[in-house]
């Protein structure tokens, strides 16, 4: 995802001199081509996320299209008030880019896990929040962000994610995309969990359970109508995210379902509401939190039995 993001961003920057990338002193090994090709459009703000974000707002107010970049927890939570007051309240064309959303920086420890970022960001009025599911979705949502502008939060995975879509899907702002249609359970995924969810659906299929798989990169604006439609046509809805089960995709879906009067049960699969203090790589930590294909399919089977 990161690779696709930088490739597409550079393409856009070459044709739009108003596009500016600011990093909070991160991006070693990935920002260099951008710096080389568009040096006047690149700023290293140093390890100073509050100033980075406030400056981004100021640049945008004066006509720039700004992308701020860092590991996902830093450009969101360290400077939350600058995002709320300076960027969102002013409707500034700033896209906050967080790399390594979720547990991607697993072994670096709790400080580098972004597991509450979606919940926090989606509470801010006027701020679009998007977590693409694979490199193809990354290209699609980035195109939307460039054309329609910020304020927005773009939550990326890290690198090496498998492409699920064969080509760039149509995921216009606020729209989910259906990957397969089934009848029993609706699996809704956001962010880098998408390949795992597709695999889990394959496993369920082997067990005779028919799944619909929907990728919902946009958390804000959220595709409420798709959630309502899925709830009315399936026995169970399951949200899967590499994020706290509190306030993210599962929270957004729960809000919609509760107010719709739907009888469809919801199961939220995500990071449990506690800090990670054990060391482990992303794969290990996903296992700890039940974010593997085996765990997801097992929990779905169990839940369907209980209904």
């Amino acid at each position: 995802m990161r690779t696709r993001f930088f490739a597409d961003l550079l393409t856009a920057a070459r044709s739009d001199p108003n596009l500016v990338l600011i990093t909070g002193d991160l991006g070693f090994g990935v920002v260099e081509p951008f710096v080389e090709a568009c040096p006047a459009q690149f700023v290293n703000a140093g390890v100073a996320e509050q100033n980075m974000t406030g400056m981004a707002a100021g640049m945008a107010m004066a006509g720039a299209k700004v992308f701020t970049y860092s590991i996902a927890n830093f450009p969101t939570m360290r400077c939350l008030e600058q995002i709320r007051n300076d960027v969102a309240y002013h409707g500034a064309d700033v896209v906050i880019v967080g790399v390594g959303g979720g547990l991607a920086y697993g072994a670096l420890g709790m400080s580098h896990h972004a597991t509450e970022d979606i919940a926090v960001m989606r509470a801010i009025p006027g701020l679009a929040v998007v977590a693409p599911g694979d490199p193809e979705e990354t290209g699609a949502v980035l195109m939307d962000l460039i054309e329609r502008g910020g304020p927005a939060y773009l939550r990326l995975g890290k690198a090496g994610e498998r492409s699920v879509h064969a080509s760039r899907p149509d995921v216009a702002r606020g729209q989910a995309v259906t990957l397969r249609n089934g009848t029993d359970v609706a699996l809704v995924s956001t962010g880098a969990m998408l390949p795992v969810v597709v695999d889990a659906a394959d496993d369920l299929d082997q067990l005779g359970i028919s799944s619909t798989v929907v990728s919902s990169p946009w958390i804000a604006p959220f595709d409420e109508s798709t959630v309502r439609r899925l709830a009315s046509t399936h026995r169970l809805m399951v949200t899967v995210e590499e994020h706290s089960i509190t306030g993210g995709l599962g929270g957004a879906a729960a809000e919609v379902l509760a107010e719709s009067g739907s009888a469809c049960p919801l199961m939220r699969i995500g990071v449990s509401h506690k800090f990670n203090s054990v060391v482990g790589d992303q794969g290990y930590l996903r296992e700890v939190h039940g974010l593997t294909r085996q765990s997801i399919s097992k929990r779905v089977v169990k839940r369907l039995e209980d209904i």
């Binding site: 974000t53 981004a56 100021g58 007051n85 002013h90």
Partner: peptide, 25 residues
């Protein structure tokens, strides 16, 4: 009114971003 403020410590960053932009263009 160019910018809304109230929480302290925001304005110098915003002005710095504006100044950076003026210089860039």
């Amino acid at each position: 009114v160019e910018v809304s403020t109230g929480s302290l410590g925001h304005g110098l960053s915003i002005a710095t971003g504006m100044a950076w932009r003026a210089r860039a263009v």
